[in-house]
């Protein structure tokens, strides 16, 4: 039979749109990284930023760029990608935008474990990340046992998740009040997420997590897309649904938990990235990569706004929280009227 020019034109159009969206989002991410390197308490011209980064310059300005601004931007970018991709993977798998790890308690679980390790056990670094990932998986398993019904996330799963999330939030608050050196900044970090005091050595585990678990999700993106057509259809098309589901949950949980261990549970980034990416990108294909870029852009922009644009300095989670909360309300209102999918 013929592979008609019309079909090729339809495909080319979808591909063109996809590339455009990826290019746009990448430009945006790079642009905001550039902006947050140049603009801060003081303005540093782009040339001086490059000189500082390449080690060609020294002094106070270079210190500001190398030690304060660059680690912060890198961490914001990586954490945003992890949140965005992990969130979109959950939303796609469970066919519900409300089934995002930061709504159903997986981020809160990771955060609670991290707080406990840091405040009570006095741990740091990789141990914290491992504890966060373990707790995140634990919460995922708990929700699975309590509320799973054949792969779709009904109201029941969301409500169970919100309940677990609330319990974990109060656990975090309790642990923080028990802390020997209680500080508001530390508390905000573990309750809403913050990039204050970001250090470059925090970026390494995050980059590795993104490469490994993001890579796993990327490799499974076609299977995941096929599962949007329902478990039976996907199985009929040769997707090993149980295996794919288990791997996607573990990988997405790990992404979110690693990001949470580094930056705290930055509010609503996992929740918002997927739907925003879905509006921008063509929905016939996977949105994991657009969602990762959207997450990075969101965290970078929100942190920039919190540091520079707003009258007082706010941690990043407060800004993303202000963006995310109205959307959450909107979705819950809409969800009451009809079944939704991402």
């Amino acid at each position: 039979m013929i592979a008609s020019p019309e079909l090729r034109a339809v495909r080319a159009e979808a591909r063109r749109r996809r590339r455009l969206v990826l290019a746009l989002l990448s430009t945006m991410v790079l642009g905001v990284i550039g902006l947050s390197l140049c603009v801060g308490h003081s303005f540093v011209p782009p040339g001086a930023v490059i000189a500082a980064l390449t080690g060609a310059a020294d002094g106070g300005e270079a210190f500001t760029i190398r030690v304060l601004r660059a680690p912060r931007a890198v961490l914001a970018c990586l954490a945003g990608m992890c949140f965005g991709m992990g969130g979109a993977a959950f939303q796609t798998l469970l066919r519900n935008p409300l089934a995002s790890p930061d709504i159903i308690g997986i981020s809160a679980g990771a955060s609670a474990a991290a707080v406990w390790c840091i405040v009570v056990l006095g741990l740091s670094g990789m141990a914290v990340s491992v504890a966060a990932v373990t707790a995140g998986l634990g919460v995922a398993a708990l929700i699975y046992v309590l509320a799973w019904r054949g792969g779709t996330a009904g109201t029941r799963l969301i409500l169970v998740g919100i309940g677990i999330s609330a319990m974990l939030q109060s656990f975090i608050a309790y642990v923080l009040t028990q802390a020997p050196s209680w500080s508001l900044l530390e508390a905000l970090r573990w309750m809403t997420g913050s990039l204050n005091a970001a250090q470059i050595d925090q970026a390494m585990p995050l980059a590795v997590a993104l490469a490994v678990f993001g890579g796993v999700l990327f490799a499974l993106r076609r299977d995941l897309e096929t599962m949007r057509m329902g478990d039976d259809t996907a199985a009929g098309l040769g997707v090993a649904i149980d295996r794919v589901r288990a791997i996607v949950i573990c990988a997405a949980t790990a992404l979110v938990a690693f990001a949470t261990a580094a930056a705290g549970p930055v509010a609503f980034v996992a929740f918002l990235s997927g739907p925003i990416a879905a509006r921008l990108a063509y929905r016939g294909g996977s949105i994991l990569v657009p969602a990762a870029l959207t997450g990075a852009a969101l965290v970078l922009l929100a942190d920039f706004a919190g540091q520079v644009l707003l009258p007082t300095r706010y941690p990043v989670g407060i800004v993303t929280g202000m963006l995310g909360a109205p959307y959450l309300v909107l979705l819950i209102v809409r969800d009451n009227r009809r079944g939704t999918s991402l």
Binding site: R222, M229, T233, G236, R283, G284, S341
Partner: peptide, 26 residues
Amino acid sequence: IGLLPQTPVAPEGITVLDLVSRGRHP
């Protein structure tokens, strides 16, 4: 073996061409 279940779900925002193309998945 091909299977058409009773209630397949069309993902939101997918074109006919892309949906049919998914039949090539296996």
